[in-house]
Each structure stands twice: as C-alpha cells, then as structure tokens.
Design a protein around this nucleic acid. Structure first.
Lengths: 232, 232, 232, 232
DNA sequence: AATGAATGAGTGTTCATTCAT
DNA sequence: CATGAATGAACACTCATTCAT
C-alpha cells in the first residue's frame, strides 16, 4: 500500500542503497590502487580518480587513509573466517573420512579467500607499513586485531579437530597453522613478483598459470606430510 | 720499519677503514629504519638521525635512497647464493646419503641467511614497493635482478641433484623451490608480525622463540613430504 | 530573468573569474620575483609569499616552476607577434609612404610590447638559464620555441616588404632584424641595470626617464641609417 | 751573485708564480662553467673538477662564489677601458680624419674586448642574477662598480671628442654610448642563443658565422647614421 | 551530500661553505 | 698549502586533510 510513511521509507532506503553502493565503489578503487602501488605510494588523489569522485567525498565515507585501508582488509579476514567455519562445521558433523580431503579443503579455503579478492588478500601483508600507532578510532583497529586473532583461532581449532579425529598427524597446531598461512601468503607473494617481472600489470592470467600448479604441489606435499593414512 | 712512505700508507689505510666504517654505520641505521617503517615511510632524515650524522653525508656514500636500499639487500642475496653453492658442492661430491640431511641443510641455508641479517632478509620483500623503474645507475639494478635469478637457479639445481641422486622424490623443481622460499619468507613474516603485536620493537628474543620451533616443524613436514626413504 | 539555471551559471562564472583572477595574481607575483632574482634564484616559496598564498596552491595553477616561467614569457612573444602583424598589414595595404614612419612604428612595436609587461619582456632573456631539457609537457615548450621563431619570421617579413616598397635601403633582413632586437633588448637591459644601481626597486619612473630618450635617439639613428629618402 | 738572500727571494718568486698560475687555472675553469650554466646553476664542485683541484682550494684563492665571479668579470671591463684609452689617445693626437674610421674602431674595440674572452664578456650580463646585496668584501664590489663607471665615462669622452672634431654628428653622448653598448651586447647575446639552438655547446665556429656579418652590418648602419660626411 | 580549492608538514636531493688532517 | 669529509640551509615538489560553498 502506498502511503506517505512508506514513501519516506522508500526514499530512505534508496539513499541507504546509494550510499552503500558508493562506499563499495570507493573500496574497489582503493583496492586496485593500494595493490598496485603499496600503501605509502598510493595517494588519495589517485583513489578518488579511480573511483571517479572527488577527494573530500572519500573522507565522508572513511575517516582517514588508514581507515580506508583497514576497511579493505577486514572483509578478507571475514571471508577466511567464514571458510574456516564451514570446515569446522564439516568436521564436527563427522563429514571427513580422509586427511587428504581435509588438507584439500584447507587449501581450498585459503585459495577461495584469495580468489574472492586477490588484491585485498595481498594487501594484508602491507599491515607492517601502515602507521601502526595512530588513532584511526580504536574501533577499526580493535576490530582488525580481533578478527585476525579469531580467524587464526578457528584455523587452529580445525587442525585440532582433524588431529582428534585421527585424520592428520599430531602436530603443534599453533605452528602448523602458521606454516600453512605463511606458505600460502609467501607463495602467492612470490608468484606475483615473478609474474610482474615478466610483464607488469597483473593480468591475472600469467599469475594464475604460475600460482595454481605451485599451490597444487604444495597441497600434495602437505597431504603427504600431514595425513595419517600413509603414502598416496 | 718506520718510514715516511709507511706513514703515508698508514694514513691512507686508516682513512679507508674509517670510510668503510661509516658506510657500515649508515647501512646499519638504514637497515633498522627500513625494516621498521618500510621503504616508503622511511625517510632519509630518520636514517641520518639513526646513524648520528647529517643527511647530506649519506649522499656521499649512497647516490639515492634506492641505492642505499639496494646496497642493503644485495648482500643477503649473495649470502643465499653462497649457502646454496655449498649445498651444491656437497651434493656433487656425493656427500649426502639421506634426503633428510638434504632437507635439513636446505632449511639451514635459508635460516643462516636470515640470521646473518634478519632485517635485510625481510627487506627483500619490499622490492615491490620500490621505484622499480628509476635509474640507480643500471649497475645496481641489473646486479640485483641477476642476483635474484641466479640464486633461484642454484636453488633449483640443488633440488635437481637431490632428485637425480634419489634423495628426494621427483617433483617440479621450479614449483618446489618457490614453495620452499615462499614458506620460509611467509613464516618469518608472520612471526615477525606476531612478535611485534605482543611487544613492539623486535627484540629478537620473542621472535626467535616463535620462529625456531615453527621452522623446525616445517622442516619435519618437508622431510616427510619430500624424502624418498619413507616415514621417519 | 532569474532562474535556478541562471543561478548555477552565475556561480560557475564567478568561480571561473575567481580562478582566473588568482592565476593572474600568481603570475604577477612570479613576474616580480623572477625579474628581481632571475630564474634560478627565484624560489617558489618567495613567489607564494609574494602572491600571499601557500606554495601548493601555485602548483594547482602551474605544473612546475618552468611552466610558471613560460606562462609568463609566452604572452610577451604573442604581443610582439601581434604588433608585427599590424605593421605587416599596414605595409601590405600600402599605408606607408616614408621609411621614417616605418622605422618609427617598428620601434613603437617593440616599445609597446615592452611596456605591456616590462618584467615579462626582460625575463625573455633568462631563457638560457632555464632547464632547457625538461619535459614541461612538450606543449608549452614547443609553443615557446615556435612562437619565437614565428615572431622573428614576421619581423623579417616586415623588413622585406619595406625594402620591396622602396621605403628602406636593401639590407640583409636576417641581420637587420637581429640588430633591431639586439639593440632594443640590450638597451633596455642596460638602462634597467643603471636605474637599479641608482635606486633599487625598479620604480619605473627612473627607468623611463633613462629609457625613453635613449630609444628615441636609437630610432633617429636607425631612421638615418635605414631610410632611403636621405637626410631628415 | 748567488746568496742565501737571493735564494730565499727566488723561492718566494717561484711560489708567487705558482700561486698566480693556479689562480689563472681556476679562473679559466670558472669562466667555462659560468658561461655554459649561468651563475646560479654553476656549482663550485663543477668548477673545482674543471680546474682539476679540490673545492676547498678554490676558497683559498677566492673568498666566495661571488668573489670568483667578479674576479672573472673585472678583466673584461679593464680590457674595454684599455681599448677605449687607445681610441682616446688616437683622437687626442688628431689621428682620425673620417668618422667612418672612428666608428670602425669603436666597433673594433668592442669586438676585440669580446674576442679576448667571449665567455667573460657574456658573463657581464649575469650581473643581475648575482646576489647583489651580499658582502663579498666591499673591495671587489666597489672595484666592479667603479670600473664600469670609468669604462663608460671613457666611452662617452671618445664620443665627445669625435663630435668636437666634427667627425660624427652631435648627439647626446650618454645615450649614444648606451646604444652602442646595448646593441653590441644584445646582438652577441641573441646570436649566442641562436647558435646554441641549432647545435648546443658553443663551438665558436657556428657563432662566429652568425655574429661577424651581423656586426658588420651594424657597423655600416652606425657609420651611416653617425658620420657627418654624408652617404658612403 | 559533494566538490573545487587551499594548505601545513614533509620528501628526497643539492650546494656553498668549513673543519680536521 | 691542499684535500676528503661533513653539514646547515634551501629547494622543487607532494600529499593527507580540511574549508567554503
């Protein structure tokens, strides 16, 4: 039914949608720029141009450059958490029969998370470069820290479940989780550099051709190393 | 015998030593600053202050910021190459009986190289951020690129020899070398972030307590995965 | 009629006007500073202070120091060209009966061009000092070079017409044009130095009192030397 | 006769000679550098390298960059004065019969002075760029100012004599002297710019081919304009 | 809400000048 | 006397951020 009340509501909704849409546009632009230049060399001007808006507008959506950056990184961590949550659920439901499957899905989780937003994923490593001290409102900062922690915690829990269920060999889960993450990030990083040396501009294709088989081998090696059931 | 001739020579020598010493002071300061801030956020001013000299003095020893940075990174690659050359020689001399030994020494090579200059090692990854185009005299630039290539080539050759001699299982050496490097760098990077989150300032101790056992586990996993002789 | 449309237009217009006004303010400030210090000693900071704005603002109107400088010089060349075009038209229309008139107008052309922007005129000579190589976008650079060439070409054509019409004696027009320009610039330059030695600050008055009669005499001498009709 | 006294004297002399020689070396180097770069862009480093000595040594011969510069300019003014003194003497001895001769020798005087040290001559015009205020010891500054004044005074006297003796037409000698100087400097300047535009590096040849005929024409025009004896 | 314009605080780099030897 | 090394003071140019509209 059409009422003045509903009309107002509709306008409100549209505005919200538009606002969210613009926010996403900015984030997408920022992602591209941060990725190709690194945190420090990326300028707000360039991001604004990439988003086809004016610079001050960015500041209406994100308090600072740091804030924008972290807003980019957060979803990646969330995605990782979601992936791991699925794995966790699967394990708790007893859906895994072999360690190989588990390892395969572990790698899939990482890869899916990377694929969702390759740039966002890589940007995670720029964390070091950022102004680690500055304010940025406590909220974002805390959120980021907590998100990271929870992600890793869930990863460890997945490994613990795998060990408990006799799917993978007993190892220190802290260390193992770090190794998996380190391996994944390190390999992705290396292949990016390699693919950029050949032809600059990350056209995805070249990168994928390097990355996928390497990750496949890594998965095979970890299956071999971690799984209980013996040689494949 | 003390002669005027010797005297002059002695003075020359001392000056050379002093110059070299100052060069090292600057490099050490730069290492600290680059490491803690990243390439872009590190300022020449800060490096000068860290080295307790004036800014222009830096420019008497290093042509540009880039030059300074690369002078920091080059020795690390050289060290890596040296380590691998030793492994290569050992393999060619038939000194390796078991794959486990080989994997252990492979990890040792990486670790020794990291230990020689932890900051320098990590800085390698900043390569992406650097002004990849600028001149810096062709010499350093070319040297760097070539050094990287040759290091990786030697790493692959080591793996090839290991496979030929039946010490490790047949795998694609390109991919395997990438995985090893990626794993090592990724893990070191992750543990650094972790140790800095706990207490900023990289006091080495905290880092080492995290890093060493993790790398030990990684070594064990790779021994398991790569070696021919079966379960250890 | 007042409409919302017109309102917007009016705002646009005002902004345009303001922008142009500020541009002129900067140009005027730059003119003063360049003139009193020369290209190299003039600093952007000083120009900014003279224009009572901040330094980065200058860079919103002019890409580089070079660009600012050339933007100052270009109009002078254009004015010169315009003056000569008038002379040319007059000659082609057969409006000149005596060589004396032509020489008088030649000097008038130079003088008018100088008067339009005395500093700008003198700044032309600083061309040598400028970074002759740098980019500055090809556009301005090319424009400048071409402008100079075309101005001189037109000057020569004016002399050619004068000779053809029997108004002035047959001389090499390349050389004659160079002599006229050299004389004018050289004299202006000298009188400026002289007037500055007496009282620094180019108050125009002192300069004019020196410059005008000297140029008058130069005109008389050239009339004598160039004109066909014999002694005046 | 060889005595200890003479010996000391001889050593003193040699030292003086050597010192003077080095001074000249520096001046020659500075001349080249100042000329090709202009005052501001010329660096003491470059001058030192051109003179094949170290930078501080320059400061033992010249107090500041300004001092060095003015020491370069002074001899040119002296040469000009010498040339004019000769002309003056010739006139006073009644050696000139025709105005044409006088004008020819006037131009010769300028040209000879330019030829003695083309760079030095041109450098004179950079006077504006120099730090006109700074100390530079009063001495050099005063000397320069006075030298300029006296040179011009003598030039005017030459013209006065020429007028008195009925060789050239009565004109204001202040203005006429300024015109002659301005013409000469302006033309030289212009031809230098032109010859550099064609092929950078002032190889003299190209310049001379432009300069000489132009000056020849200028001389002819001034003969025509200034001389009493009528058309040539 | 969006933007054109403005700016304070740096950046890397250079240079005239001065020590210490 | 000559010099290698050092430095204070600039300089052109940039950027995250904020007004005014």
């Amino acid at each position: 039914m059409y009422t003045r009340q509903n009309h107002r509501q509709a306008i409100q909704d549209r505005k919200h949608r538009e606002r969210e849409h613009r926010r996403q546009t900015i984030l997408a632009a920022a992602k591209r720029v941060f990725f190709s230049k690194g945190y420090a060399k990326a300028t707000m001007d360039e991001i604004a141009m990439a988003a086809e808006i004016s610079k001050p507008t960015i500041y209406q959506y994100f308090k600072t450059k740091d804030d924008l950056y972290f807003s980019l990184v957060l979803p990646v961590l969330d995605e990782l958490d979601r992936q791991w949550a699925e794995l966790e659920a699967g394990l708790e439901a007893g859906r895994y029969r072999s360690g190989a499957r588990l390892v395969r899905d572990l790698f899939k989780a990482y890869y899916h998370c990377y694929e969702t937003s390759p740039e966002g994923f890589m940007i995670l490593e720029l964390l070091q470069q950022t102004n680690q001290v500055r304010e940025l409102g406590v909220r974002t900062r805390a959120a980021l820290s907590e998100r990271g922690r929870s992600s890793f915690a869930r990863g460890r829990h997945v490994l613990e479940l795998g060990i408990e269920q006799g799917l993978i060999r007993p190892v220190d889960v802290h260390q193992a989780a770090d190794i998996l993450w380190g391996l994944f990030v390190g390999v992705v990083q290396l292949e990016i550099i390699k693919s950029q040396q050949k032809r600059p501009g990350l056209k995805g294709d070249a990168l994928d051709r390097l990355l996928k088989p390497t990750l496949k081998l890594a998965e095979a090696l970890f299956t071999e190393a971690l799984c209980v059931e013996g040689r494949v």
